[in-house]
Amino acid sequence: MATTEEFLRDYGVDIRGNGQRRWPDEIKARIVAESLKTGATVNAVAARYGLRANHLSEWRSRARNGRLVLPAAEENGFCFASVVLSDGAGAAAVPAVPERGAKSDGMSAVPIEIAVGQVTIRLESGTKAARIAEIVRAIGGRP
Score class of each variant (00 low, 15 high):
V94H: 05
R67L: 09
D87Q: 05
A109Y: 10
P111M: 08
A63Y: 00
E113A: 07
G90W: 12
V84S: 14
S61A: 11
V84W: 15
A115S: 12
G77T: 08
R62S: 06
D105H: 05
V69Q: 00
G77W: 11
L70F: 03
S108C: 15
C79H: 08
N65S: 09
A91C: 10
G50V: 05
A91N: 15
G106H: 03
C79D: 05
G101H: 11
V69K: 02
A96S: 13
V97Y: 03
G101C: 15
P95K: 03
I112D: 03
R67C: 05
V84R: 13
E74W: 09
A96M: 12
S86P: 06
R64F: 00
G101M: 15
G90K: 06
I114V: 14
Y49S: 04
S57N: 01
L85R: 08
G88R: 07
S108N: 08
S86G: 13
G77A: 12
F78N: 11
P111F: 12
A89C: 15
E99Q: 13
V110P: 00
P95S: 02
V83W: 04
M107Q: 07
A91L: 10
M107E: 01
C79K: 02
S61C: 02
V84Y: 14
R67P: 00
I114N: 06
G90L: 13
L68F: 01
G101L: 15
K103F: 02
N65D: 12
I112V: 15
E113P: 02
N54M: 09
A53Q: 05
R48G: 07
D87I: 01
E113L: 08
S61F: 02
K103M: 10
F80C: 12
R64D: 02
S57C: 02
A102V: 12
L68R: 03
L70W: 02
A102Y: 13
I112P: 02
R48V: 05
A81C: 07
E99R: 14
G101R: 15
L51R: 03
N76F: 13
N76P: 09
R48E: 14
Y49H: 10
